[in-house]
Design a protein around this nucleic acid. Structure first.
Length: 446
RNA sequence: GCCGCUAUCGUCUAGGGGACUAGGACGCCGCCCUCUCACGGCGGAAACCCGGGUUCGAAUCCCGGUAGCGGUACCA
């Protein structure tokens, strides 16, 4: 089995393409096949070395490796020219000067459901000859047989007037030469498939097996795009999602697994993946569920690995102690710094939080007593700090939050933080007391 | 217009003629846990697009309609 993934490098790796890449990978890895990477780089305006690099980076980040390639469509010009002249010679293809307008006029004359048939010329673009009768049948692994009447298909242009090959031709020749047995791609290619089948037929070669994946949409049911937030793998990465979770989540979007379990590693996914189980319906990308899946994978990483990723994500070092007390509270890498940044950068400046907790009735008194209790806490560890603060609660006869929240806001400058005892201990006695003093003097000012 | 694909809770899905009073997950609501935010636990609301067939029996098979999506390039 030889499987190929052929991204078009016309921008960042779209989430839909990432899923296609993943399914190709799962298919090959699950069945001991070979994964071939082919780059469709002939769109001369949009594909650049940078976009190719971007695509490869994204694949690597997702932990999707390949066995052969990347091969570039543009590097195979000589072979494409050779096949082109063979097809011209055998009469399967012909030169034609017809323009898009000519095709439209032809249809006006012959009916909208009549495919365009061109006049043979000495030069011009090269068109593939489509039979007038019969059916081109795509035997799709996911959808079953879909039939396209040849009569309604236009003779497709397979090379420009300058001789450069077009996608539907080049991809068929490349798949043939690479010995590809399985083509798994987005459903937007389904109606291209009969054209590619015709190329194989003209060459007298068997075509690979095709499987067309349902498309991915945004919450409004339209094609997923930037308007929906993250639309590319790079954006997901920047938003603090980890590859394990992204792989897991996008695999779920159509893999057709039994639904009693849905937390999987890449190798578990490969074990379970069945191409013929893949769903036929388009799916909506739901970032909230990705957040949930990401949280689970994050907590599975372990403190050491999570620290490594967070240090890489934030560009800071020495974060392990903060990771230890906050790992349970974050869903993405991006959630981390807003939660614990105050430990390193000093209290945040949330004026509303300050007024609501410290300036409120009893806030200052609670804080004063907490300060005194913490000053006497020895050794300064979680147990004694907890005992000290709970002592204040008891002494004042209030709810725990009425003591803990003022302390939290004093040391964090915001209403949100890791556990209060752990945070106080991590900060140390000296730093904690000085932050409380600062908050107190600020509260006493008119 | 033409060609094609698809149709189960808001979302992802399970379901392959009787096991369906349609199951799970995310989200939502309520309760519990609780020092905030999370995590976790318990409970709840929430779906078979419509119409015809076939059948003793249809979410499941067939046909039609409708809707959504894709393609319809000398793009990929």
């Amino acid at each position: 089995m030889r499987v190929r993934f052929a991204p078009s490098p016309t921008g960042a790796l779209h989430i839909g393409s990432a899923r296609t890449a993943l399914y190709n990978w799962l298919l090959a890895r699950g069945q001991g096949g070979t994964l071939v990477l082919r780059i469709e780089d002939t769109d001369r305006e949009r594909s650049t070395p940078e976009t190719v690099e971007q695509i490869l980076d994204a694949l690597t980040w997702l932990n999707l490796d390949w066995d052969e390639g990347p091969f570039f469509q543009s590097e195979r010009a000589e072979r494409h020219a050779e096949v082109l002249s063979r097809l011209l010679g055998s009469g399967h293809a012909y030169h034609c000067t017809a323009t898009a307008d000519d095709v439209r006029d032809y249809k006006l004359q012959h009916g909208q459901d009549r495919g365009f048939r061109g006049q043979v010329a000495e030069h011009g673009a090269i068109r593939l000859r489509v039979p007038d009768e019969g059916l081109s049948v795509v035997d799709d692994v996911i959808r079953g047989e879909t039939r396209f009447p040849n009569a309604s298909m236009d003779d497709p242009v397979i090379a420009r007037a300058d001789g450069s090959p077009l996608y539907n031709f080049a991809v068929a020749v490349d798949d043939l030469d690479a010995g590809i047995t399985h083509v798994v791609r987005g459903e937007d290619h389904l109606s291209n498939t009969p054209k590619q089948l015709l190329v194989f037929e003209a060459l007298g070669e068997p075509a690979p097996l095709y499987a067309h994946l349902p498309l991915l949409h945004g919450p409004d049911g339209r094609k997923l795009s930037k308007r929906h937030g993250a639309a590319s793998v790079q954006e997901l990465r920047d938003a603090g999602y980890i590859p394990e979770a992204v792989d897991n989540y996008i695999a779920l979007l159509g893999a057709g697994f039994a639904s009693d379990e849905e937390h999987f590693s890449l190798s578990e996914l490969a074990e379970r993946f069945r191409l013929d189980r893949v769903s036929k319906n388009p799916a909506v990308f739901d970032e909230r569920k990705l957040r949930h899946v990401n949280g689970r994978h994050l907590r599975e990483l372990g403190i050491d690995e999570l620290t490594r990723r967070l240090e890489q994500f934030t560009g800071r070092t020495g974060l392990r102690p903060a990771v230890e007390i906050s790992a349970e509270k974050i869903q993405t890498l991006a959630d981390f710094w807003p939660l614990v940044g105050f430990i390193y950068d000093g209290p945040a400046d949330d004026q509303a939080a300050f007024e609501k907790t410290i300036c409120r009735d009893g806030g200052v008194e609670s804080l004063e007593q907490a300060r005194a209790a913490l000053a006497n806490a020895e050794p300064f560890d979680v147990d004694t700090v907890e005992a000290a603060l709970r002592g204040v609660v008891e002494q004042r006869g209030v709810k725990p939050g009425q003591v803990f929240q003022p302390v939290r806001v004093a040391i964090a400058g915001q209403t949100m933080s890791p556990g209060i005892f752990e945070t106080v201990v991590l900060l140390g006695k000296e730093e904690t007391l000085s932050r409380i003093d600062l908050a107190l003097s600020r509260a006493r000012q008119p």
